Computed example of a mutant assay.
Amino acid sequence: MPVLDGPFLPNQKLELAPVLCEVDEVDNLVALGADLFASRGSELLRLRPASSGPERVTGFDAPISAMAGLGEALAIGLDREGIVVRNGRFDGKVVKPRGDVLQCPTAIAWLDESTLAVCNGSKRLGAFDWRRALMTHDNSGSIVLVDLAKDKVSILTTGLGWPAGVVATAGRVIVSECLRHRILAVTFPDGKSLELIAGLPGYPARLTRSAAGGVWLCFYSVRNQLVEFILREDEYRTRMVNELPEEHWMAPSLRSGHSFKEPMQGSQLKQMGILKPYSVTRSYGLVACCDANMTPIGSFHSRADGTRHGVVAAVECGGALYVASRGSNAVLEIRDPMAVLSE
């Protein structure tokens, strides 16, 4: 199992980042011009620097599970409800799930002003069930192309282990495959896949473009040896999933340390009241910066003894990198992120 080293060498840069605002259960982040939007459950929020808090823009009948912006248009994925578009040429457009397609939208990218690439995490699970997908070896995810002008939905590729992030490039999309710890490039329309990065030390989540021409790569959490062992023990894992509440599974998490019932390894125990930063951990905060070829060049961390865990989204807006930490229910602000990355 890969260790955190090289461009993933641990630091405290995420833990020390200023808080823009607190948002309970924050999930998606997207920038439209100078405006920064986030999601909280079924609510779309506008975040304003130096304001008193998030401003509610609108709400939906289902939780928001994915968002992407292009110009003034905002494409919004709804858990088990498909895709809706707000503003722009296709304002008000609704694309409902087609069978088991588009019922689990986990990430969206605009290919052009009328075409979307959508990650469908699973055929049978909801858009927030990545832990259940991991512990049940669910590899039924797919990449779906949505033509808004023709109201056409087509599958680009299938058999993915929870595709969680996507960005578009010329003639292909770059996809993070969470359960297999890798990044793929998928060409269209033929759907051929090329592995760009393999053996990542964590569970990759959403992808967004950086102002420097690369890509920001978020991670739900990092891998550890006990979880890797449990994933090979089918009888134990099946009983754990069927008999225990999900928050008590020995599985990666967006947050930890909030209940004495949580599973832990010996190194997670506090010694003299102190939890070591290098302890084995279920939750972790990690955002990596990759260059245009998807080679990692640096990263921001919140370690085992920190709180800014469960990074589910990151986006640049107005010269700053904004990071959604689900573990701490906060949106963090890192001004001039490339300079901070090189410190």
Rank of each mutant, 00 (worst) to 15 (best):
L111E: 03
L32S: 05
S210G: 15
R98I: 05
R255S: 14
L226E: 14
F8V: 02
I64L: 13
R182M: 11
S39Q: 01
G285T: 07
A62R: 02
V315H: 09
R56G: 12
A330I: 06
K150D: 15
A330R: 02
R132G: 00
R172N: 10
A168F: 11
R255A: 13
D35C: 11
A205M: 14
I64F: 09
D91K: 02
P18T: 03
I334T: 05
L194Y: 07
E246H: 08
L194V: 08
F300Q: 05
A50V: 06
G191V: 01
T136K: 00
V85A: 09
M338V: 07
H248R: 10
V84A: 14
E247V: 10
M240R: 02
D305F: 02
H301T: 04
L148H: 07
L217V: 13
T187I: 00
L254D: 13
G310D: 04
T157D: 12
L36A: 05
A314G: 04
V175F: 10
G33V: 13
T157R: 11
R326Q: 12
L196H: 00
W162C: 03
C289H: 15
R86Y: 01
L244K: 06
T169N: 05
L4R: 08
G306M: 10
K276P: 10
S122L: 09
V331M: 12
C317D: 06
L9K: 15
N28G: 11
L179A: 13
S299M: 08
F8W: 09
R255P: 00
A117K: 08
A75M: 10
T115Y: 00
P2Q: 06
A212C: 12
A251H: 07
S259H: 03
L29C: 08
N242S: 15
T136V: 01
G199E: 04
A68D: 07
L70A: 06
Y203W: 05
T187A: 13
V315L: 10
Y278C: 07
A38Q: 04
N329Q: 06
C104Q: 02
Q271M: 07
R182F: 01
N242M: 09
